[in-house]
Design a protein around this nucleic acid. Structure first.
Length: 601
RNA sequence: GGCCCCGUCGUCUAGCCUGGUCUAGGACACAUCCCUUUCACGGAUGCGACAUGGGUUCGAAUCCCAUCGGGGUCACCA
């Protein structure tokens, strides 16, 4: 019995998309659940857009999510790319290459047999010619289908076909097209059931491009067959591709004459935005253009001048950050981006930084950068189109689980059919729960690692006073993301001599009732000075503040708020004991002193 | 526009296959209250859906049909 094999086959043209993460997760979970293998394959046949860097990034993103492949490329500790292949005793021949661009010889061998069996033929139309026909068809509201040339006979390797092949081999620029069968194609889908496509729906699609690389359809079918893939799990946007793949599987044979298998398919729901459009990288460009539009409608700038200004600012920024190269390309792409001719992500990000707006998180890396935990992302995304259908002991739907649970419970039978909207609120809530489920120590550790990468200034400051645990305790409950944790502790970064205090807070908490707050603040200040550095901890400080409040008869509130304004500059901060402890004796006293002297005059 | 898929609270969904236990359950969001030194956390309560119209049936969220609505896809991208 050959093992069950699923595969995730991204094209390395950018970061891992959140929808791709779900596909990978489901493929992984299905393989684990079934005792099979999960394979990663890199579909880099688009020479212009693929990059090794993207492939590396995608592998890293998957690893970060805890989705580890049994077969295909992985990143070694030394940073180089290695690969897992079928073992000698696995009953399967080794795959060899998992990057499609390195498998061209394999595709060509199958392609040639397709040609000599009359099921594929070289076509010499130029791109412009077919585009023109297509445009004409669209203008006439007709469905465009590539018309099969008159000299092609389905399934016959005629002299005319031989002549075409000879021309192609002689080096004439051409593509190879598949001679599509004129019959009904039924796709058996594990989620959707049988999906029927009427005869004549499929045209003679391209299977090898003019640059010699196979198209997606062809490479996928050859690879899935030759690599031993048994189940194809992918998003529903691929459903309409499937009849092509099935037709190809029916037409292809191995050198020994055996037929290709018809694979088992399971198409899962699309993940879309709250407005029901498909979630895509372009949403970033959309958001950036929207910000720009708002700016334009507000300040009605001269457009050419604005482009010049923007360009200058971006270049200056790049120079300051030492990212000259990247920004040079941004600058050349900017006019096209503004005109809507390209959706370059770097341009979008540069504009977002300029207009101080947040771009929507679309890729796994975006979520990582903004402080989401991988376990929360996996958990949330697993619920988009799948549900365990189990209840918790108190009768609620079971929806909090980890990847190990998925690996033991996932099944195709509980994949839904309806598209799901990506509710960022719910993800945020899942993330907050994941953070709160961490012990203080664990949270401190992971938060610090994140800060070092994404908030280095803050990390260095906290590192300097070594108060991560105290800060983590103070901040954990009010952090829905790791980034929130930094926001909640922003007071740490305040200058001890800063003289700006939120006026409303000053009025309410210090000056009201005849300077009640200031008086209290003076009292605590004196008392705090008696606490030495060794006993400067949250519990001691809290007790002291409580005492002052009691002695004064005003309770805990007024003193607390007075101190809070003094040390944080505003009426909001984490609990006082912790806040003072984190600041340390010197800093805390200095701030109160500053506040007293600024407001007493 | 052609083809394909889908239609339960605003959102994710349970229930649908195997009609009655569904005056449709849970979660997120929202609202109110409680807790509270601020902001949060937490606790309680509330708001809120079977797209519409026909069948079938004693009985339909569940089965059938139609309508309407939404989405996907129509590349020498994957």
């Amino acid at each position: 019995m050959p093992p069950l094999v699923t595969r995730f086959a991204p094209s390395p043209t950018g970061h891992l998309h959140i929808g791709g993460a779900r596909t990978a997760l489901f493929c992984w979970a299905f393989a684990k659940k079934s005792g099979g293998r999960f394979m990663l394959r890199i579909e880099d046949t688009d020479a212009a857009r693929s990059s090794l860097e993207s492939a590396r990034g995608i592998i890293e993103d998957l690893h970060w999510l805890g989705i580890v492949n049994d077969l295909g490329p992985f990143i070694k500790p030394d940073g180089s790319i290695g690969q897992h292949d079928w073992e000698p005793n696995s009953g399967r021949p080794p795959v060899g290459e998992y990057f499609q661009a390195r498998r061209v010889a394999i595709y060509n061998a199958y392609l040639e047999r397709l040609i000599t069996s009359g099921r594929a033929y070289p076509a010499f139309d130029t791109n412009e010619e077919t585009e023109k026909q297509r445009a004409a068809a669209v203008a006439a509201k007709q469905t465009y289908r590539y018309p099969r040339p008159a000299d092609i006979e389905f399934g016959q390797y005629t002299p005319a076909m031989q002549e075409r092949w000879k021309r192609a081999q002689a080096g004439e620029r051409h593509v190879v097209r598949f001679a599509a069968p004129n019959e009904e194609i039924v796709v058996h889908d594990e989620v959707l059931g049988d999906v029927r496509y009427a005869p004549g729906e499929m045209d003679d699609f391209v299977i090898r491009k003019a640059d010699g690389f196979p198209t997606y359809h062809f490479a996928v079918v050859i690879d899935d067959e030759t690599m031993g893939v048994t189940h194809v799990l992918r998003a529903q946007e691929h459903l309409n591709n499937t009849p092509r793949h099935v037709a190809l599987q029916k037409a292809l044979t191995h050198p020994d004459g055996t037929a290709f298998r018809i694979l088992l398919y399971a198409h899962m729901p699309i993940i879309c935005n709250m407005d029901a459009s498909k979630m895509s990288k372009r949403d970033k460009a959309k958001a950036a253009r929207k910000a720009l539009k708002e700016y334009e409608s507000k300040s009605k700038p001269d457009k050419p001048q604005m482009i010049i200004d923007l360009t200058r600012q971006l270049m200056a920024k790049a120079k300051a950050e030492g990212t000259d190269n990247e920004t040079a390309s941004i600058v050349t792409l900017l006019p096209g981006f503004l005109a809507g001719d390209n959706d370059n992500v770097q341009v979008a990000e540069a504009l977002a930084a300029h207009f101080k707006i947040a771009l929507p998180e679309i890729e796994v890396w975006d979520f990582k950068k903004n402080g989401y935990l991988p376990e929360a992302i996996c958990n949330f995304v697993a619920l988009l189109g799948w549900n365990p259908g189990l209840k918790t002991p108190d009768g609620k739907d079971l929806e909090k689980f980890d990847n190990a649970f998925l690996a033991s419970h996932f099944g195709l039978d509980r994949i839904g059919k309806t598209a799901s909207k990506f509710d960022r609120n719910k993800l945020l809530s899942f993330n907050a729960d994941a953070i709160n489920g961490l012990s203080d120590e664990e949270f401190a550790k992971r938060w610090r690692i994140w800060c070092v990468e994404f908030e280095p200034v803050f990390a260095a400051r906290v590192d300097a006073n070594g108060r991560w645990i105290e800060l983590a305790k103070a901040v954990k409950a009010r952090a829905k993301t790791l980034r929130d944790g930094v926001k909640a502790s922003a007071f740490v970064l305040r200058d001890d001599h800063a003289a700006d205090f939120d006026p409303a807070a000053v009025e309410k908490n210090l000056k009201a009732n005849g300077n009640q707050g200031l008086t209290l603040l003076r009292t605590v200040f004196e008392r705090l000075q008696t606490v030495d550095a060794a006993s400067w901890n949250a519990a001691t400080l809290h007790a002291l503040i409580e005492q002052v409040g009691q002695q004064d008869g005003t309770g805990l509130g007024p003193v607390s708020q007075a101190i809070r304004v003094a040390i944080a500059g505003a009426a909001v901060s984490p609990p006082l004991g912790e806040s003072l402890a984190v600041l340390g004796r010197g800093s805390a006293l200095k701030r109160i002193e500053t506040c007293l002297s600024v407001l007493s005059t």
